[in-house]
């Protein structure tokens, strides 16, 4: 019903955000690409010049590089696995008739609202500290040796912390999706004598497909760029055992002042994210059509 007049007006209303996002997308990215072919270190700014593919070569041949890629993927898939599976199970649990459900929900959802630096430091100090931490006390109580989490299993420790932050999110989304599940369908399945497992597999899971896709998409966006949790717990160490791509680029840029090298790393991170994104956007786009 829109007239030509309102159409033009609405286009104009849409312009500022499009222009802003376009600039935000193109200008810095273009600069990163430019820098990635430059020899440019802030410590020796006079020695600048075209550097060909050297930065990329140097970044990729760094032994830490493949470890960082591996750590990035492990971190994303590890947290996704824990939160999606855990979220489904907890969603089913919280979907039952429970006394005091709204308070239980608050207990479950709270970790999501804690800033990353706080949750990482609380876990690092008060829970995972090998001498004074709660886990050490529990281990001692059972006569086991306390684990020095960040020395022995640094990446797994970070996965646990990040999963703690994101499990509430997955639970809440999946619980909400479950609440819209058709009761009559369940009852019909009951009448036909379907087992609990069969009902879950043939009714609940397909119903959740869309919610699961969205959870994976949103979490992946954030998980590819995990930074603060690593910075305040392990600083990427010991060695480079818990360095992900984000942390590696940060290290190059702001600790070694290697603008060229960090830019090359940044571009590699963008390419990696895009590969992941192509799959996800396609899946979500399909799911959002409905």
């Amino acid at each position: 019903m829109a007239t030509a007049h309102t159409k033009t007006l609405s286009r104009i209303m849409n312009l500022p955000s499009i222009i802003l996002l376009f600039i935000w997308m193109i200008v810095p990215l273009g600069m990163t690409i430019y820098y990635s072919f430059q020899r440019y270190n802030l410590l020796t700014p006079s020695r600048r010049g075209f550097n060909g593919w050297f930065n990329y070569e140097f970044f990729i041949t760094d032994p830490a590089f493949f470890e960082a890629i591996g750590n990035t993927l492990l971190l994303v898939t590890g947290v996704l696995a824990i939160t999606v599976i855990g979220g489904i199970l907890l969603g089913i649990l919280l979907n039952q008739a429970i006394i005091g459900r709204s308070i239980v929900r608050i207990l479950f959802i709270s970790p999501f609202f804690i800033m990353p630096t706080v949750s990482a430091l609380i876990w690092k100090n008060m829970l995972m500290n090998p001498i004074y931490g709660i886990f050490a006390h529990i281990a001692e109580f059972f006569g086991a040796n306390p684990v020095d989490f960040f020395a022995v299993i640094p990446l797994l420790s970070i996965i646990i912390i990040v999963a703690w932050q994101w499990l509430p999110f997955a639970t809440l989304i999946l619980l909400t999706a479950m609440q819209s599940l058709d009761q009559e369908q369940q009852e019909a399945a009951d009448m036909d004598g379907a087992s609990t497992l069969a009902k879950f597999y043939y009714i609940t899971l397909p119903h959740l497909a869309r919610a699961i896709t969205v959870v994976i998409l949103i979490e992946t966006i954030f998980l590819l760029s995990i930074f603060a949790e690593i910075l305040v717990t392990t600083n990427g160490g010991p060695g480079t055992a818990s360095t992900n791509l984000t942390y590696m680029v940060y290290n190059r840029a702001l600790l070694q002042y290697d603008i060229g090298g960090a830019s090359a790393g940044g571009i590699i991170a963008v390419i990696l994210a895009n590969i992941v994104a192509i799959f996800l956007i396609r899946a979500v786009g399909k799911n959002l059509e409905a």
């Binding site: 997308m25 680029v249 840029a253 940044g266």
Partner: peptide, 24 residues
């Protein structure tokens, strides 16, 4: 398409533009 494109800008990892943003 515009909406999808806007969402895709969010897919860009911050670390991909850390250097130029910092310098700017």
């Amino acid at each position: 398409d515009v909406l999808m494109w806007m969402l895709s800008t969010k897919m860009m990892p911050p670390v991909g533009v850390l250097v130029p943003i910092y310098l700017m």
